[in-house]
Computed example of a mutant assay.
Amino acid sequence: MSADAGKSGGEKPTPPREITLTYEEDSEMWVARDEDTGVASQGDTREAALENLDEAVAGYHGAGRSPTEQELRELGIDPKENESGELPDVLQ
């Protein structure tokens, strides 16, 4: 989570980020937004919103992995039919 930036343990500390954290009463969800990247995420709690934001920002910067064939099938995507590299409607 963002608050762990100064902890040791082999991980590189992350530079400070400006984050906006708001509570949306309509959806009863916390929304966290990284002001530098514009990436936003949400969660049932403040902590969950911040953890989800950390994961989303890492993905924005290229972290992550390609989905497995099983994960694509669970989304209703046939991996053999998605060879073009274009995003299917469900992911746009």
Rank of each mutant, 00 (worst) to 15 (best):
D4Y: 15
G43D: 14
P88D: 06
S8C: 05
E51A: 09
K7L: 15
S2R: 12
L91N: 05
E71R: 05
E86Y: 10
E71V: 14
T68N: 01
T68H: 01
Q70V: 15
D26C: 00
G62F: 07
N82Q: 12
E18I: 13
K80F: 10
D26H: 02
P88G: 04
V90G: 02
T68V: 12
G62W: 08
R17W: 01
K12P: 00
S41G: 14
E11M: 11
K7T: 15
K7Y: 09
G85V: 02
G59K: 11
P16C: 03
R17H: 06
V57M: 03
E47V: 15
E18Y: 04
A3S: 14
D36C: 03
T37F: 04
V31C: 02
H61W: 01
S27H: 02
E51H: 00
P88Y: 11
G6V: 00
E47N: 14
N52K: 09
N52C: 09
S27M: 06
P88T: 06
L21W: 08
Q42T: 15
E18H: 03
R73D: 12
G62L: 07
M29W: 07
E28M: 10
R17D: 09
N82K: 15
R73A: 12
Q70W: 15
P67K: 13
K12F: 04
E25S: 05
R73T: 10
A58Y: 14
M1T: 03
G38R: 14
E18P: 00
T37E: 03
E69F: 04
T20R: 15
G38V: 01
G59T: 08
Q42L: 08
M1W: 00
I77D: 10
G38H: 13
S41R: 01
E24P: 05
E11H: 04
S41L: 04
E25A: 02
R33Q: 07
S41K: 00
K80N: 12
G64D: 10
E11Y: 03
K80R: 13
D54F: 12
P15H: 11
G85I: 01
E83K: 04
P15M: 14
E74A: 05
G59W: 12
I19K: 04
E35N: 05
A40M: 13
G85A: 08
A5L: 11
M1V: 11
E28D: 10
